[in-house]
Design a protein around this nucleic acid. Structure first.
Lengths: 339, 339
DNA sequence: CTGTTAGCGCTTTCAT
DNA sequence: ATGAAAGCGCTAACAG
């Protein structure tokens, strides 16, 4: 015997298909008693509700929201900031009785899933630029986070201002400044930006942060030399160590490290300490994001906290709300022992 | 103007719907020239292929495979073993041009997704036991990993034998042994198992590993005292530290720590070193899983390597193959400086 | 409160 | 090589 369908169940119970459908979708359309009876009979027959694929075809919506990650699952999954964000999205979606489909930003296209989902929440500009084109002309709802798409709603923080604030909190006149940046150019390894063209991927957060750092430096009469502006392809320990070692072994050594993630800042501090540098006396360090781990480490890190889980919730809520505005979330500069 | 459909495109091009369908799904059914023409016209019209929801309804398959995690996304995502596994699944599925839907094992039911997917790969017994019941009577393909369901294909390693091997590699006569186990009883905190009933969740890997440890101990004439058998609710640093501190501060202190994950073993070694214990002279430690991080840490860890990424690939392949056997994958005991 | 009916967008015989 | 037509399982109007 194959799986029961709405029709087969209706026949078995001697009622019309509409009645069964209503029993599941519109309780107000029939008596409580009848509904109870139908529901329990269905349970016995092994029918656990209308087929969702058919339902989705008919209604035009499925209750599934896709989250497009900026990179592969494997990478995102190991980043505490991203997983905080996902946690928030999952929590809010659960409240809405919706479901979450995780999709890789390095995938080739959205074709395989667009027809199954109600829309997309894009967390960071997808690594594969083809996806951006597809999202632009997608008839479904698209909400971006940490970047913008013309005419689409978004959720973000003011990265430029936050970076500016963090730099102002740590910089002093006469400082020699190094920046450990994230995905500033198109290169797969950690290296100084040098003369490589800045790779502006949909006005990424990194470039906005760099703008903020530079505004602060300008204001203090400081300049950033090209060899001290580093590009890291990923926010992880390995990339950060390479960069930190190179930067800190220069002479004269930098007195301040502006880091575009807390993970980078933490690794940099480890390297600095291993090199015998004293923080903050000889080197001040500032991070970005706000992750738990920095609270357990000494010296604690001065950083911009952006509450990624709340950002995830906000994104899911904004997705649902249907409003098309560009939402700016609050952030908080928290001073630690590193500055 | 709304999204073009197969029908609207057919009308626009003056051919039948079947022809358009064939152009996309069965190239052999029409001339190359015509197909080319149709495909390019479709691209112009902004039609990028048949609607997948309708296709799935009609064909009864969608090309999406759900991976049911044993716990919430947020938890799994931070576990290196799980993310290795997912990596492998994702890689193999990509080869098959299929897609991956991640689903939480603590979700309430599968109803919301069953109709959209071709089947389920369950990575570990889901935390929510209701899901197990649903999987048992699911008409779609179900493959389990790291646990078994009657009549369903599975992919696993021989946990009992692997645990036995690892214990035999480290144990000596006269040893005082402590076990840092994973999810052995139904408790949310780290604690000794004591007299609590072992919670056999579908013959979990943990219990098989415990069996293996005990066989080895028996063979060497050793016994495991109840206060030295620990239950940890999760494989993470916090849980492991609690347990390790308690276990190592006993006197006489244990001489061997059998740990059910590398993450646990690593944390335990940190605690031991902080306590001034020398490894392996005063304390030998063995782990389970095989994760990269143990190679960078000193002392390096003796552990059972189970190649989770290959396990993921194997699972996705077995899912696709249609074979219903229970596959046992190889593992490898690797000796490190900790034993 | 219940039944009838017309599709949602597609694939697939079966004719032509 | 192509077209007509029958559904896949369901929902929403509408009529009763």
């Amino acid at each position: 015997m194959s799986k029961p369908t709405l029709k087969s169940v209706a026949k078995a119970l001697g009622v019309s298909t509409a009645t069964i459908s209503n029993a599941f979708n519109r309780p107000d359309q029939l008596s409580v008693a009848l509904r109870e009876k139908i529901l329990s009979s269905c349970a016995e027959l092994g029918y656990d509700g209308p087929n969702k694929a058919a339902q989705s075809l008919r209604k035009g919506s499925s209750g599934i929201v896709a989250v497009i990650l900026s990179d592969s699952l494997e990478y995102m999954v190991s980043d505490p900031v991203a997983s905080q964000f996902l946690q928030g999205v999952a929590r809010e979606l659960e409240r809405q009785s919706k479901h979450l489909l995780l999709y890789s930003g390095s995938a080739d296209n959205l074709d395989s899933i667009t027809d199954f989902v109600d829309g997309f929440i894009c967390y960071g500009a997808p690594r594969n630029l083809k996806l951006i084109e597809q999202l632009k002309r997608c008839p479904k709802r698209v909400l971006t986070v940490d970047f913008d798409l013309p005419g689409r709603p978004s959720v973000n923080i003011d990265n430029e201002q936050a970076a500016y604030d963090s730099a102002m909190a740590v910089l002093k006149p006469g400082d020699r400044v190094a920046v450990l940046g994230l995905r500033l150019i198109d290169a797969a390894d950690s290296r100084t930006v040098g003369t490589a063209p800045l790779w502006d991927n949909q006005s990424s957060v990194s470039h906005r942060r760099l703008d903020g750092y530079q505004r602060a430096m300008q204001q203090l009469g400081l300049t950033l030399s090209n060899e001290l502006l580093w590009h890291l392809p990923e926010s992880n320990q390995a990339c950060a160590e390479t960069a930190a070692k190179a930067v800190l072994s220069q002479s004269p050594a930098p007195t301040v490290l502006l880091c575009m993630s807390d993970l980078i800042a933490l690794s940099a501090m480890r390297v600095a300490l291993a090199l015998g540098l004293r923080i903050p006396e000889q080197l001040r360090v500032v991070g970005f994001d706000g992750i738990e781990e920095t609270l357990r480490y000494h010296p604690t890190l001065t950083s911009v906290w952006q509450f990624s889980d709340q950002k995830g919730e906000a994104a899911a809520r904004a997705f649902q709300s249907g409003q098309d505005d560009n939402q700016l979330l609050p952030y908080e500069l928290r001073l630690g022992e590193s500055s």
